[in-house]
Design a protein around this nucleic acid. Structure first.
Length: 232
DNA sequence: CCTGCGATCGTCT
DNA sequence: GACGATCGCAGGA
């Protein structure tokens, strides 16, 4: 079941939490890959010094962030990597949610083929924003995709008809003042909220707990793993 | 396990 | 001309 317009018209912080547990689907040439979203970051548009669209900065790159909720925003970074965002809020309000990590559920053999790394750890295929784009064959050609009606890239809410290929044992983790723990009654997992990654330039917005991930999920990004192991 | 470093080029000033 | 919403590898513990 695809998510509808109302779902994407939320603010980025709300949507970043709501996207956890949803399924990202990538289809092309008869290939189908499905992965559960396990880590996200909110970029709150005009007010957020970490956002590409801070102060309503509108350029060739950021123009897709100004679209109505429900489109993709894919950008190229560090000369090598692509990152996938979900544009949210209303048209003219440039908010977006960065997808930072996913858990492969279907088509994992295709994801492995797209990645050329020595590591044999399954988690290393998709536990970072650049990694998951490479694994799921997502690049700037998919910038501005319609996630509600498009066929190549979309997001669904249910796990029905999906075969889980990974058997994962989740471990508990420590908490300290660097986190918030979010328990939502309508979700079967808990959410950790903490600081965002790689935005040292963002001044006071570095301190916002606008990164969210599923507590105990082993496919969260390297940094989240690290925090997980930090003693209380 | 963890740390440090270089890769590599589009984007914006 | 400088830098980035990152990654993979080498090397040490």
């Amino acid at each position: 079941m695809r998510l509808d317009k109302n779902f994407y018209r939320q603010d980025a912080v709300s949507l970043a939490k709501d996207l956890l547990g949803k399924l990202l689907v990538r289809e092309y040439n008869g290939i189908r890959m499905v992965a559960k979203i396990v880590e996200t970051e909110a970029y709150m548009g005009p007010i957020d010094k970490a956002s590409h669209a801070y102060n309503n900065r509108k350029t060739n790159r950021t123009v897709t962030m100004f679209k109505d909720g429900g489109y993709s925003y894919v950008y190229f970074i560090y000369g090598m990597y692509n990152c996938l965002n979900v544009v949210c809020s209303d048209e003219g309000t440039p908010e977006a949610v960065l997808i930072r990590a996913v858990e492969p559920l279907e088509g994992i053999e295709h994801m492995k083929e797209h990645r050329t790394i020595k590591s044999k750890r399954v988690e290393d295929i998709t536990n970072g924003p650049g990694k998951l784009c490479k694994a799921m064959n997502i690049d700037r050609g998919l910038n501005g995709c319609d996630l509600i009606a498009g066929k190549e890239l979309y997001i669904v809410a249910e796990t029905e008809n999906v075969v889980t290929v990974n058997t994962v044992e989740y471990k508990e983790q420590y908490l300290n003042e660097e986190f918030s723990l979010i328990k939502a009654t309508n979700k079967n997992f808990e959410i950790i909220a903490t600081r965002r990654i790689g935005i040292d330039y963002a001044e006071e917005f570095k301190e916002q707990f606008w990164r969210f991930y599923i507590r105990g999920n082993k496919f969260v990004s390297k940094d989240a793993e690290k925090i997980k192991k930090r003693p209380v």
